[in-house]
Simulated scan of single mutants.
Amino acid sequence: MFIKQILANQVLLTGATAWLIAQLLKVILNYSMNRRLNLERFVGSGGMPSSHAAFIMALSTRVGLKEGWNSSLYGVTLGVALIVMYDAAGVRRAAGKQAKILNEIADEIFHHGELKQQKLKELVGHTPYEVIVGALLGILIALLLYYY
């Protein structure tokens, strides 16, 4: 019974729709740039646009539209949204840069396949631009789903 209620939650569905569209856009943009279909971009983190930002801003915007812009719930969701977006463009992006440097060091030390070293995932964060585009996408999707 509670699963049926969750699946009928318009706020959650708005966020999920924004995430889905953002992930699809990553695949499409990646294909247009590399002329190669990479379905891994559909489930991977990082890249343009930020699906984290799209999801959380769609969620927050839909709560604001439903509950009111001065509601406590909107304040909480906006606060969480700002933390998620800061993390995506700050902490996780820094982790990706560090992974890239560590991969380069490992390549230097273990070159020619003498010792197998698993590469660290480099694409984990977002540029501020990717976060802003994701946030705007989320807001737009929330507005479209609310009014149409």
Rank of each mutant, 00 (worst) to 15 (best):
I132D: 02
F2P: 14
G96C: 06
R62G: 03
A22C: 13
H52G: 08
R35D: 09
A53I: 04
N30R: 02
L78Q: 10
I3W: 06
L65R: 06
A58Y: 06
L136F: 13
E130W: 05
A135G: 10
Y31G: 08
Y74C: 11
H52Q: 00
A95N: 02
I101N: 07
F2N: 15
L136R: 06
Q118A: 12
A89F: 05
L123H: 04
S72Y: 00
E130Q: 15
G68K: 06
L39K: 09
T14S: 15
A99D: 01
L144Q: 01
V43S: 14
L140K: 00
W69S: 15
L82E: 00
Y31L: 15
H112P: 01
G134R: 13
W69R: 05
F55S: 12
H111S: 13
G90N: 05
L65Q: 07
L29R: 03
G79H: 03
K116G: 04
E67D: 15
G68V: 04
A18W: 01
A16I: 14
A53Y: 08
T61C: 13
E40P: 01
L123C: 08
L24M: 15
I83Q: 02
L24W: 09
V80W: 06
F42I: 05
W19A: 15
L7K: 11
A53H: 06
V84W: 01
E114Q: 10
G44Q: 05
W69N: 10
Y74Q: 09
R35E: 10
A89D: 01
R41L: 11
K119N: 12
S45D: 03
R93D: 03
A99W: 02
L102S: 01
I28K: 06
F42A: 13
I56F: 15
L120M: 14
L123G: 03
A22N: 05
S60E: 00
L143Y: 13
Q23F: 00
Q23Y: 00
V91D: 00
D107L: 10
F42P: 04
E108F: 13
Q98E: 04
L37D: 02
L143E: 11
I105V: 15
R35S: 13
L123I: 13
V133D: 00
I105S: 08
S60M: 11
Y86C: 11
L120R: 02
A142S: 12
V84F: 07
L115C: 07
G138P: 10
V91P: 09
S72E: 08
F110S: 12
G46M: 07
L123V: 13
Q5S: 07
R36S: 14
K121G: 04
Y74V: 07
R92K: 09
H111F: 12
N9W: 08
L37A: 13
M1E: 12
L25N: 09
L145W: 07
Y146T: 12
L143F: 14
L59V: 15
I21W: 07
A18V: 05
L143A: 13
H111Y: 08
E122Q: 09
E130G: 08
I141W: 04
R41C: 11
L73A: 14
Q118Y: 02
H111I: 04
G138Q: 04
L115V: 15
